[in-house]
Design a protein around this nucleic acid. Structure first.
Lengths: 362, 362
DNA sequence: GTGAAAGCGCTAACAC
DNA sequence: GTGTTAGCGCTTTCAC
């Protein structure tokens, strides 16, 4: 059996109240007693019992985290960063996977496990803003993502519209005019909210530069997996749609798109620039390395964890909606449009149908 | 404040002992009382307090998991599967990342957090078998991976040697004779244990078929990231080493290798077969899809969680070392060696230096 | 600066 | 079949 406060007190020859004082770094303990107690703690290998402490304090120093799945790069990295951020603040993380299933998202929110944790970070995908009332529970919740909005609850997310606009703007600045968007929003698509916002930013940037959006360049993706990115490019190539850049709504889509382009003999970024979104570490290990819009995942982790812990330790403040800053991470997959490239249509020219595939000019 | 047993008892008009009986599904509760109590529970939204229950029982139904990082595909997927397996058995998982740092692995093993969990699953990378004594702690531990072996502790791992041999054997069966191994073991390389075992299996299979191992085909990888796989292939191509297949020690290495081959104009699997190891979901989303040795990750998760929970609920049994079964998952990146391929050296012929790069025969 | 004692919410041994 | 009660290990109020 593990040593308790009493065991330590007995060994140190003090009352167990004094031991508690030492453990909790209270004032008013003489140096001599403190040393004695610390020696006893060391000797017995004493650690406080967290269950007892939680019961007493009503706090466990455990945060709950509910993400769709760890098998997707974005959520694996987000979780990784949340765990690290929590650790820095003395909290640990109980991770649950909801698999985007409504019942599991509800369980994370309302189930008995809630009581083990001091607060919950949740990125819902199945629940929608119609379910918003469910989020204003007695125990603190911090919302992540773009699927649910709720006035009553802290929310940390990206500047999706602005970031997507900046990404598009960056491509335009490189001279690109026929920018395909892979991962365009559809009614029944996955992660509706996110794609809607990113598409909005894409269109805004085009319009700001007087480029008319071309439906042929807006490709929905069934899911956000690599294969969908590849399929998007395939469709462009098969339909002979002219394009000089690809903006993918996520890095996973970008990876698939890059791959399909390269297999088809298209040089990156010579013929086509590819820009992703999310800045996954994976992008650093590609050839060419992937340029990407960093929506601020790292910062979301930090801010969300801070917001949650602040609310736990200091309840009652009004709910805050926070958007973190983004950045464009320029690597090798994007470059200046080559003046000689034959595939580029003039701004606003609509669909340019070219014979077969994207010709490779070199 | 959340409702307690007493609140429920008061509302139901029974003693709180009776409520406890209902909650814990004891015998000897009349139907009528049970119904009354359940109604009261429902009305108050009562959930038992886990801290109190843990304190009382000395059990928390929380498992600890210490993996190097969630940013690597293998560990993200392993964690995902462990969380699901634990959930099925009524446990939840506290995930920690050790970043392969010795101090953090020690902390997972010995730190105060151990007391919150009923048991620990740990995949050490910095600790070695010399540290084995540290693993036989009072509370149950299950070891994962190949870096530490300890008689005193349950251990669940892959049949690395046999699986790598089977993978190599499979490639030989397809007619390949010049099989490059990317991720060969080195003294100071990462994940020493794993690469040593997989290389051993590779060599065994070659020898079983009378093929002499060729040092030029055994490429160490600095780390197990995608870029290292690409670098391995580059080295083969630049040195003009003839090869008709690549066996990568992990899927990440395989991804990099595939990419570098394709960018160099090599057709997969027409010119070269590529076989990975780990069977990450990512492999399903490549073009071509990646054939891979599945070391049994899914099963490791199940078996390890079961072993840990069994030991928690029924301590005292002797420690067990278990190796799970593997499988070869055949997808598109591997195929029969083409008889016409000019790049294939005869078995045992040693290094064939060819002019420039691997010629593409079509 | 230290000691005594209450009580967090629960389970289970013990009465009835 | 139901009620009473002790105590898990801790923090903290209150004396001294």
């Amino acid at each position: 059996m593990a040593a308790t406060l009493r065991d330590v007190a007995r060994l140190a020859g003090v009352s167990f109240r004094t031991v508690s004082n030492v453990v909790n770094e209270y004032q008013h303990v003489s140096e001599a007693t403190r040393a004695k107690v610390e020696a006893a703690i060391e000797e017995l290998g004493y650690h406080p019992n967290y269950s007892a402490r939680s019961l007493r304090l009503g706090r466990s120093k455990i945060l709950g985290l509910a993400v769709p799945t760890l098998t997707q790069g974005y959520f694996a990295e987000l979780t990784s960063e949340i765990i690290d951020a929590a650790r820095e603040r003395g909290y640990i993380v109980l991770t649950e996977q909801t698999n985007s299933r409504r019942e599991l998202e509800l369980d994370a929110l309302q189930g008995p496990r809630r009581l083990m944790t001091d607060g919950l970070l949740i990125n819902p995908l199945a629940l929608t803003s119609e379910d918003a009332p469910l989020f204003s529970t007695e125990r603190p919740v911090v919302l992540l993502g773009e699927n649910v909005f709720c006035d009553q609850v802290d929310h940390v997310t990206m500047k999706n519209v602005e970031a997507a606009a900046a990404g598009t703007d960056y491509l335009i600045g490189l001279g690109h005019r026929r920018i395909a968007l892979i991962g365009a929003a559809t009614q029944d698509g996955p992660v509706m909210g996110t794609s809607t916002l990113r598409m909005k930013g894409y269109r805004q940037a085009l319009q700001a530069h007087g480029i008319a959006p071309d439906p042929a360049l807006e490709l929905p993706a069934g899911t956000w997996r690599r294969a969908d990115g590849a399929a998007g490019v395939r469709r462009l190539l098969d339909n002979g749609v002219a394009f000089d850049a690809v903006f993918a709504a996520t890095d996973m889509l970008a990876l698939g798109a890059m791959h399909e382009l390269q297999v088809s003999g298209v040089t990156l970024p010579g013929d086509v620039s590819v820009l992703g979104f999310d800045n996954l570490v994976e992008g650093e290990y590609l050839t060419p390395t992937l340029s990407s819009v960093d929506g601020g995942r790292r910062r979301i982790a930090d801010v969300a964890v801070s917001a949650l812990i602040d609310r736990i330790e200091n309840p009652g403040a009004p709910a805050v909606y926070q958007e973190v800053d983004f950045a464009i991470v320029e690597r090798e997959s994007t470059g200046l449009r080559r003046p000689s490239a034959t595939v580029v249509a003039e701004p606003g020219a609509g669909v340019d149908v070219i014979p077969a595939r994207l010709p490779v000019t070199s």
